[in-house]
Simulated assay, not measured.
Amino acid sequence: MRRIGRIGDTAIAAVTVVALASGVWLLGAGTGTHAPPQPPAAEGRPDPGEERLAAPPLEPSPPTRIRIPAIRVNAPLMGLALTPAGSLDVPPADRKNLAGWYRAGTVPGETGTAVVAGHVDNAEGPAVFYDLGALKRGAVIEVDRKDGSVAVFTVDAVEVYSTRDFPDEKVYGAAARPELRVITCGGGYSRATGYLGNVVVFAHLTGSRAPTR
């Protein structure tokens, strides 16, 4: 199995991102009308030299919920670990409004690259990140945390990659500021092989709200 990169000190295998959808419902519904949206090139990652203001990092606190108002996402988060094969486990496919975060990696809001993953669909139809490919640069992602604080991220880019050309370092590489990646399946759909790649949202911390007392 091809390795696709490292988060912290732990390697994660290709199934990390390719196991986030079944595509079964597409076979009956037809891919022309019901396939999830894919990001246009205009939403791609900006030049590295483009200045983007970032908020100071937060103290670590486990995330509990992710909200993306622009695509109507409001979902609880579960912790994800590695499987015995070294790949990132995924949320249960039958819980379509559940996402997960890699709990052995960076906590959303602290310095580094935090990773959230969720299904694009299941056997019954669209799941939590079905519309992820429709997200635009500048959109807001909010992550509720166990300590009552809310980490607020701004989307820098939305990109789609084929499975065989997945840019490990670009997606999972270390960051000097608090960053977030939100990942699901995408890149078109084939009846023979399923989804052909992955949609990846790049975001960075631009604010926070203190715990309510």
Rank of each mutant, 00 (worst) to 15 (best):
Val18Met: 14
Val143Gly: 10
Gly173Arg: 00
Pro48Gln: 02
Val182Lys: 15
Gly125Cys: 08
Cys185Asp: 02
Arg145Asp: 15
Arg52Lys: 11
Ala192Pro: 02
Ala174Asp: 15
Gly79Tyr: 06
Val150Arg: 13
Glu110Tyr: 04
Phe166Val: 03
Gly44Ile: 01
Thr113Lys: 03
Glu124Gly: 12
Val17Leu: 09
Met78Tyr: 08
Tyr189Lys: 15
Leu132Ser: 04
Ala176Phe: 11
Ala123Lys: 09
Ala139Ile: 13
Gly125Met: 10
Pro167Gln: 13
His34Gly: 08
Asp168Val: 04
Ala75Lys: 09
Ala157Leu: 06
Val201Met: 08
Met1Pro: 14
Val160Met: 05
Tyr130Ala: 13
Val158His: 00
Pro48Leu: 04
Val158Leu: 01
Glu179Tyr: 04
Val24Asp: 12
Gly5Val: 00
Ile183Arg: 07
Ala55Met: 08
Trp25Thr: 01
Arg164Cys: 15
Tyr195Asp: 14
Pro69Glu: 08
Gly79Pro: 13
Leu196Asn: 04
Ala13Thr: 04
Ser87Asn: 01
Arg145Cys: 15
Thr212Lys: 12
Pro91Thr: 03
Pro69Thr: 14
Ala210Trp: 06
Lys170Pro: 00
Thr106Val: 15
Ser190Met: 06
Ala35Cys: 06
Lys170Ser: 00
Gly194Thr: 04
Gly173Asp: 01
Ala13Asp: 12
Ala55Leu: 05
Ser87Thr: 01
Ala81Gln: 14
Pro91Lys: 03
Tyr195Gly: 15
Pro56Asp: 04
Asp9Ala: 00
Thr111Ala: 11
Asn122Lys: 10
Pro36Met: 02
Asp9Phe: 00
His204Leu: 03
Pro40Val: 00
His34Cys: 08
Ala123Arg: 12
Gly186Asn: 11
Pro37Met: 03
Gly28Leu: 10
Leu132Asp: 03
Asp147Met: 12
Pro37Gln: 07
Asp9Met: 00
Thr33Arg: 15
Gly86Pro: 05
Ala54Gly: 13
Ala210Met: 05
Thr33Val: 10
Val90Glu: 15
Val18Ala: 14
